[in-house]
Design a protein around this nucleic acid. Structure first.
Lengths: 182, 182
DNA sequence: GAGGCCATGTAAACTGTTACATGATTTG
DNA sequence: CAAATCATGTAACAGTTTACATGGCCTC
């Protein structure tokens, strides 16, 4: 998965390893860290495989290696991206696919987004079942924070749902943070 | 860290490995999975170290192993929990400590929560700097979803902040999900 | 009686981090 | 001129998942 994310970063633009790392941090940094100890070997491996092309340049005395996806890399990437998300196998990584989903043709994209939405709703439903078993009265300090964590997870899923609903219609992002309710 | 989480689950109650796994899933499942291939060896290791005590029982023909923390285990756990959170070392795992923070005396707890809050605000501030560089006009399909992912991360942090502010004052959890704004 | 959940465990494979290593450029 | 950031890489280590392995209990 990490490999595909890397290819996805250099589909149209030449970037250095350093640049790629930055982009990943900004885009999906909240759930995935790309350590350079993982990134640089990956770049080498993907170049050897023929998925990336490397172009070394000198900027003054500093060497920079620019990478860009080859046709083979683009094909492999798009095949991976178009594959339906499997909750059992892909676990939590749907956000990575969502991050890159703009690369899919609109029709498949909409289908995938609907699948994600369905999956989130299923998880939410499950948490609602669990929630019914939480006592509502006075909690000890101990239990308070345990249940608080549960509610945090619940809330997080809710936000995910709202977000997917929002981007499914490709509403302007400038409005996203201001929207308060569903 | 995983080890301490496990000890934290059995401070007062005897639980089986299976039970522990379930509890972790409900409490912090959204950011941490406890695979049984990791849990069972950990239980064995912690028992050997003297941090857990095991008590085998038969339920019909089925053997169940109940674990509970020893005094040594409790001490080690509380030392770990009281240690200030280090963003450079502990990364994203603060939610695990928050999940267990009710075990700390109120004074230290409040201090830790304030530290978490400060850390989240710092991250938010950083994202706000990044956000200023995002063009507000019409985005291509490609860029739309990349920036959308950024906003998701931003939103997630905001929720984290709201949550920490809320539980800092130990407000009733039943109201949490209904609160819409800060 | 089949399928799903309860229950435990091991080992190989895989993934990811951290420490080690080096050095240039930019900014205060 | 010091510190931060840019820039690349390796290797040992730590952490995690997955597949293999087994079997009981409960509900439809």
């Amino acid at each position: 998965m990490f490999d595909y994310l890397v290819i996805g970063m250099v589909l149209y633009e030449e970037l250095t390893g350093y640049d790629i790392k930055k982009r990943i941090e900004v885009g999906v940094g909240n759930l995935l860290k790309a350590s350079h100890g993982q990134l640089y070997p990956a770049l080498k491996k993907l170049t050897d495989k023929g998925y990336l092309m490397m172009n070394m340049q000198m900027q003054g005395r500093r060497q920079k290696k620019y990478y860009i996806a080859t046709d083979a890399g683009k094909t492999a990437f798009k095949e991976w991206l178009a594959t339906p998300f499997d909750p059992n196998k892909d676990g939590d990584n749907y956000l990575v696919k969502l991050f890159l989903i703009g690369e899919l043709p609109r029709e498949i994209r909409t289908k995938r987004l609907q699948e994600y939405e369905f999956h989130i709703r299923k998880q939410l439903h499950h948490l609602e079942m669990v929630e019914k078993q939480i006592p509502t009265e006075k909690l000890s300090d101990r239990n308070y924070f345990e249940f608080a964590s549960f509610y945090y997870g619940y809330q997080t899923l809710h936000n995910m749902l709202r977000w997917v609903e929002y981007i499914k219609e490709q509403k302007p992002l400038s409005g996203y943070l201001c929207v308060k309710d569903e």
